[in-house]
Design a protein around this nucleic acid. Structure first.
Lengths: 223, 223
DNA sequence: GCAATCGCTTAAAATTGCCTTAAGACCACG
DNA sequence: CGTGGTCTTAAGGCAATTTTAAGCGATTGC
């Protein structure tokens, strides 16, 4: 899921980007209206987060131009508290929702999810499972059987990635890019170290095949 | 007591929010039907105030969907229509009461109080516990064993937040937003200082695991 | 069967993030 | 206007996490 944030305040943009990436979104950021518009038209996004006040083009204008070009990407406005009256104009221009700053991050997430699942299938619970292993994204917990397993951030991220692609083979390259955010060259053995840690903590013996090694390719989570 | 207002007119929403907050309610506001529905399903509210006319989903549809999902939260409609037929439909859909706009704020308050004390939950005492630690929201007291522990406002709020989510991992982000009401960026060390104060006052040694640190994520209250 | 490659395991270095303390800012109260 | 308490900021020390590195065992291809 790729999102685009059009927001000129670097602090807020960074905050949003980081938070959303932790929720497994791929996030691009544009700092001005024209830059954002160009990006939004250049490639397909699942959703746009647009600040109301922007240098170059206002958020409203960005929205209008997109809709005029028959771009129907869901769009949520981020608007300052006292500008709420304006947002009616925004909704008329084809925005799907708006949220007042300051807002709770969870509320934003909730609204994003609403937009993303409206056209598609209903509510995906953020919970993954393979065999006796259950991973809960919201509370950042992992259980095997009834027992809770304490994992570090990276361990959790790696397991989450494998479980999100259960049944599929994850190539080392993809894992490094998505879990470690390393996009060029990979010659380290980090993945191996972490797979080892995961298997140890989850007490997976050689006969357990929930986390399989695909030699020469990568790894796969399988029931 | 947390209420949710689903109302698209910003002026009315602000008016209600402010008035109710002065009455010591915690108030969330959603501006559209879908956003409100999502919020209402995402967390438990003591009561919902729902406008009849909403963008996205009508108040009636929100109500129907909630009840269909076995959500029994008391719900009061705010309706501008004097057409009695509509409100009957609302009550049949599972609403608990309705009030016609314009209304006197005192009247609304009175109806809210009726709903909150009358039916379903007979005054559930707001009380949370982890191990030997008991927190009473109503009297603002905390005990460990039989001994009363004096906490400051923020200490209490932090402990309350953790206990309300007992068993779950609370991210620093969520804590900062919900306890401190700080949005965008949380690079302060306030949480650490307060966790330290809490543990000290509650005399939790290293071996006590009621308030655990989840490194890189946040904290969790656990039995 | 042998060499080469790949993955597993362990240990230690580098880094990050939390704990703790102290001091200043702020506020309510006398 | 001072006092006491609460809240926030900042910094050093320390411990857990993350990364790097290297030796060993297993698997593959010839």
């Amino acid at each position: 899921m790729r999102l685009l944030i059009i927001e000129d305040e670097p602090g807020i943009a960074r905050f949003l980007k980081q938070g959303l990436e932790e929720e497994a979104f791929a996030v691009d950021v544009a700092g001005t209206g024209p830059a954002g518009l160009a990006l939004a038209q250049a490639q397909p996004y699942a959703l746009l987060l647009v600040d109301w006040m922007l240098p170059g083009l206002s958020g409203l204008e960005v929205c209008q131009q997109l809709r005029a070009a028959h771009n129907r990407t869901p769009l949520i406005f981020l608007t300052a508290r006292d500008a709420v009256a304006d947002t009616i104009a925004g909704l008329q221009a084809g925005a799907n929702d708006y949220i007042k700053k300051p807002f709770h991050f969870e509320e934003l997430l909730e609204r994003i999810r609403v937009q993303l699942r409206a056209p598609g299938p209903p509510a995906a619970p953020e919970r993954f499972q393979v065999g006796p292993i259950v991973l809960d994204v919201a509370t950042h917990q992992v259980h095997k059987g009834g027992e809770e397993i304490m994992l570090t951030q990276k361990e959790f991220a790696l397991l989450e990635y494998l479980l999100r692609h259960k049944g599929k083979v994850c190539r080392r390259q993809s894992i490094i890019e998505n879990v470690w955010d390393i996009h060029f060259e990979y010659n380290t053995g980090v993945i191996d170290v972490y797979m080892n840690a995961l298997r140890k903590k989850l007490k997976l013996g050689k006969e357990d095949e929930y986390l399989q090694t695909i030699r020469g390719i990568g790894y796969a989570a399988r029931d």
